[in-house]
Amino acid sequence: MKPVLVPTNDVNSEHGIVVNWFVDDRGKVEAGALLVEVETSKAVLEVYAPEPGVVLHLVRQGTEVPLTEPVAMLFDSLSDLTAYSDRLAAEAEARAAAPGAARATVKAVQRAQELGVDLSTFDGSRLITVKDVEAAAGASQAEPATVDYSAMPAALATEPGVARILLIGGALGATQVIDIFSQVPTQQAVAIVDDDPGRWGTDVHGVPIVGGSDRLAALFAEGVFEAAVIAIGSSVDTRARFRNICAEAGIPLANAIDPTAKIATDVVIGQGNIICAFCHLGTGVRMGDNNFLSAYNSFDHHSVIGSDNATGPSCVSSGKVTVRDRVRLGTGIFLEPGVVLGDGVQVASGAVIVTSVPANHAVKTKVVTTTVVPRRS
């Protein structure tokens, strides 16, 4: 039995989504056969069989998985796989036979582990299915518990005339925005909200994390901040979701633009955009709302950038390029003149795009394996 892991050097992505299985569950494969594609925030990764065997899927298509966990197991034979599955089933039956234990299918037990659902909270009078587990997970997400924020640190004070900005997200994106504001005397980050409780009460470069995003409306109503910046660059869907949350609460979004950025005089920019160091927007460029441009991006003359997009460093376009909404670009991407990237497109690092890409498609690049050897003296 051998676990199959997702090979990646992307240190900025902790999770990926299984987008396509190429081998059926319990199917036989040869060494080097393509098993599955996993999409991260910067690339679509191809996972190959490290050796011949029979495949057991551990993750369903469309499911998000931590990149540190296996997506499949390889067995020498179907009988070995069957014995493993039978053992899991026996363990599940033993748990179900315990006094007061809930009865669940093997698939339901596996799905509960994926979603963090406690099976002991179910009514033990009937068999629990995958559908029951997923419904419980959805209900727990839709009805978050009330949190006591009384012990959270207070927001920072500002000098008169300085805009008070709240950051959404306390990870690496927050450090980039805070660095931009350190060079912009008219804006200051005064507080951060983040939905990871482990970050609450800490700070990012002196800016306190004061709780989760459920505090947004209340903090705004209290006058703690005047506008927000969504400091999340890893997920365009998350950026779009928080933009909608802010719009519903009447919270304006602010731009965070590094002073080193070169922006032509007739460029039109919406709200909530993060433009990092040494970016360039050529004459006639039109940009929507809530975009995150990493350092050294260049969009040349008369290009159009929609909303809720995010890029890695060093993405370069020629003139008259169109990037629609919720597009995710990796690092070091080149776009030829006139190219159109449709809604929801994802482009892997290192790609050169010479033709338009339709909505909800991904552009893959082969991950080149390099070898480190001792240097000759």
Rank of each mutant, 00 (worst) to 15 (best):
M1Q: 10
V4Q: 00
L5K: 02
V11S: 07
S13R: 00
H15S: 10
I17M: 07
V18R: 00
V19N: 03
R26C: 14
A31S: 12
L35N: 01
E37C: 00
V47Y: 00
L58V: 02
E64L: 05
V65F: 04
P66W: 07
E69F: 10
E69T: 04
V71L: 02
V71T: 02
R87L: 15
A92V: 03
A97W: 09
A98S: 10
G100E: 09
V106R: 06
V130P: 07
V133Y: 00
V133I: 00
A139V: 09
T146V: 13
V147I: 14
P153K: 09
A157C: 10
T158S: 09
V162P: 07
R164Y: 14
I168K: 10
G173A: 08
T175I: 10
V177W: 03
I180L: 15
F181Y: 13
S182F: 02
T186W: 03
T186K: 02
T186C: 05
T186P: 12
T186D: 14
A189N: 11
D194P: 01
G201V: 08
G206T: 00
G206I: 07
V207H: 01
A228E: 04
V229R: 02
I230M: 05
S235F: 04
V236I: 06
C246M: 10
A247V: 10
E248M: 05
G250C: 11
N255P: 01
N255T: 13
A256C: 06
D258W: 00
P259Q: 03
A261Q: 03
K262G: 04
V267W: 08
Q271A: 15
I274F: 02
G284F: 03
G284I: 00
R286E: 08
R286T: 14
G288M: 07
N290L: 15
A295E: 07
N297R: 12
H302Y: 12
H302D: 15
T311Q: 01
T311L: 10
V321R: 15
V327C: 06
L335P: 07
P337G: 14
G344E: 03
G350M: 05
V352H: 05
S356P: 01
K366Y: 06
V367C: 00
S377K: 13
